[in-house]
């Protein structure tokens, strides 16, 4: 098995958000996952950023009212 490069906190933080956005390539992802397994602070930070991201997404959820949906449907009906 290929050995995973051990990275420091600075390197891990640089890539943390891309990791949480699922934008890291497999090699970098493994390095980061390895780092947060062994570093308590970066693990806590990853958990924090993940939770904030989830809360933001929930805060952004909206439901349109029935009246607006009808308005859009009638708009679509005119196309």
């Amino acid at each position: 098995m290929k050995k995973i490069k051990t990275i420091g906190c600075e390197e891990a933080l640089k890539h943390l958000l891309a990791y949480l956005d699922q934008e890291l390539g497999p090699a970098k992802r493994r390095e980061l996952e390895h780092h947060i397994e062994i570093c308590r602070t970066c693990f806590s930070r990853a958990e924090f950023e993940k939770l904030l991201k989830t809360q933001l997404r929930e805060a952004g959820r909206e439901t349109v009212g029935a009246a607006f949906e009808e308005k859009i449907k009638s708009l679509l009906g005119r196309f």
């Binding site: 439901t63 349109v64 607006f68 308005k71 859009i72």
Partner: peptide, 27 residues
């Protein structure tokens, strides 16, 4: 469009910051 309406409206709400303008933006 109907399937994405809540999402479009949610994004519009944060862009224009009020319901009325968000509805206009989506329409």
């Amino acid at each position: 469009v109907i399937g994405l309406l809540d999402q479009l409206f949610g994004a519009a709400m944060r862009l224009v910051k009020n319901r009325e303008d968000a509805e206009d933006l989506v329409a």
